[in-house]
Write a protein that binds this DNA or RNA. Sequence first.
RNA 1: GGGCGAUUAGCUCAGUUGGUAGAGCAAUUCUUUUACACAGAAAAGGUCACAGGUUCGAGUCCUGUAUCGCCCACCA
Length: 717
Amino acid sequence: MDQKFLKPYNPEATETLIYKRWEDSGYFTPENLPGDRPETFSIVLPPPNVTGTLHMGSALMLAIEDIIVRYKRMQGFKTLWIPGTDSAAIATQAKVEKDIQKAEGKSRHDLGRPELLKRIEAFIETTKSTIINQMRAMGASLDWSRYAYTMDDKRYNAVMHAFIKMYESGLIYRGHRIVNWDPKGQTTISDDEIVYEERDSTLYTFKYSKDFPIAIATTRLETKVGDVAVAVHPEDERYMQYVGKEYDIVFCDVPIHIKVVADYTVEKEFGTGALGVTPAHSIVDWDIADRNDLPRPQVISELAKMTVGGRLFDKKVSEAREIVAEWLRAEGLMISEEKIKQNVSTAERTGGIVEPLPKLQWFVSVTKPYVAKDGSTTTLRDMMAKAAESGDVQFLVERFEKQYLHWAKNLRDWCISRQIWFGHRIPVWYKGDDIKVQIDSPGEGWGQDSDVLDTWFSAGLWTFTTMGWPNETEDLKKYHPTALIESGYDILPFWIARMIMMSGFHLGTVPFKTVYFHGLVRDGQGRKISKSLGNNIDPVDMAKKYGMDAVRIALIMGMAPGTDSKIDENKIRGYKNFANKIWNIARFVLENVEKTDIEAEHTLSKEDEEDIAELNRTVREMTRNLDGYRIDLAADTAYHYIWHTFADQVLERSKAVMNGTDVVAQRATAWKLYTILTASLKMLHPYMPFVTEEIWASLPKKETELLMIARWPAVVE
RNA sequence: GGGCGAUUAGCUCAGUUGGUAGAGCAAUUCUUUUACACAGAAAAGGUCACAGGUUCGAGUCCUGUAUCGCCCACCA
């Protein structure tokens, strides 16, 4: 017996070496796997942020996927798991800009676009090894020869190709839309970059003019010079008689034309039950204008100053508001002024008050018909719903299918342009009124669209751009659609749905057959992990203390798909004990195997046969659970069998025989112990790959040099 | 407001087509020349939120109530 078993299992000393053995073997690459393997199994890893570090959420994701991948590999599938990292465009650009501002006092406009992009790439170069090394430390059996980065050249080309294809099919178009404009930073910001601040405000109730029949309420009086309509609820008896009527009014020096329209989004109970519609400066009103075919005059500039009206012209919005209020009071049109608390949208980075403004943006139409790969005519929205309804994509947890369908069926056109610099730049060129859509510049005098694509546009292509699309590669033929996508449920609308959309359009297939959502990882008290709470548990730190095997199994044990779970140090410590338990089981078995010849003839007793039957039942149950991706239940089965049946019962009973004098019985018992040990190592290997591989290395008789390619325990006869 | 959930042992949670309630941790008692004290043995602990219903039988299916939570849209 190897002397290493005389000491407790020491993960820190072995994990790096074991990972190196796996990597050197080449078995992470499916083409190198031994045997025939006619069936493939593939997963594409949801790429972690290239500038980040591993947190418990991504550790869970890696653990779940590695467990499934190792299981399938042992079952004899040609198994591929593609690694990658994501540029996290908005967050990364913001971080680099902030650093430069701090260190050099310069804004991105001072640097210019090429220089800023250079700085970002340099920053990413310095950070990317961290996350990649942490993925290795997790034991993830990823095929590094296929590593992809969302912003590398291959992916860039593929994304451009996808845009052009969709443009040529008529699904991508340009149109106006209200964006969150930060007048202070002179930029558009995303919804995530908005901070809501509660401020004192005044709700003004007034009439446009003495002759206008309906009073309306607003906090933003200055925008009322951009009003084109008053919307009321269609069933509001107070106002029904006015619907369809039109009025010409001079409002605070500005001539406006107001039509009364009916719209279901108006709430009868709020304010006066009538809403002044300002299409150009409110997202809700923009949509009402859409439905009622109304004009959308802009009255506020990008500097948050008024663009119309005698006394209002060029005034800041806050000043203009007071001027309009004064005018209303003087004219006797003001009905009431009520102090209220209001949530004001401000830009996270500059603190500027967000001004909704209409801007030209690129969109993907989800309702325009196109000719699909199979020749039928459909729309993106219909195709997406069908993918789930037909069962081509299956959701492991049923309620997510409900959510997905609800979301897909209500999907609206998708705005894909973003006003930042770091990202996949839109391949559209302008020269005067001419437009060309192509990757490279058409020549002298052509300027490229300054916007970049929404990060989810390229992310939606991820399952097939990682396999070499738009080229018709062997990988695409063999491994796409992938078997499984696995991620947190919070990105269902952003990513999962977009992958189904993109794969359906570009390839005519679903991107994956099964959707496995894991829940959020929370701390021991059930709180979200957050920087401000300081309750982050670093998986790599935990692995140093207790071993990565313990971290992995602690993460997935009791983690039902789609349900949030909690992790704390105690739980991890508990599974470190389990790693040591299997270590000592191995020590005992190997000691006893040396006493006899397990290759010799043996006859099993009735008790031995029952023990083997119990092992077989366990293997069958585990296999059934694993095939249904219930890796949490399968882990539970293995844990209890190994600890409380194998160790506590089979092994304890064997002591009498092994210390006795019946040599024939000893042969059978030793054979039985060894058989159950090897089966147990295999069962546990997907979950605890390091300690099991380390024990495997010391086995005197084994089918393969490395446990990672041993065959999943067939039932022992 | 729209959508989706949760409520099971002191704590954290499993319980896959309905068939005698499960685990981990914590707490209790006992046991160390024993593979492992990072251990073993034993015992304890639950009207499965509440009220109805379907059924031979309900933690599981249906209806309602209460409490808690998540996502989306947000109040002009």
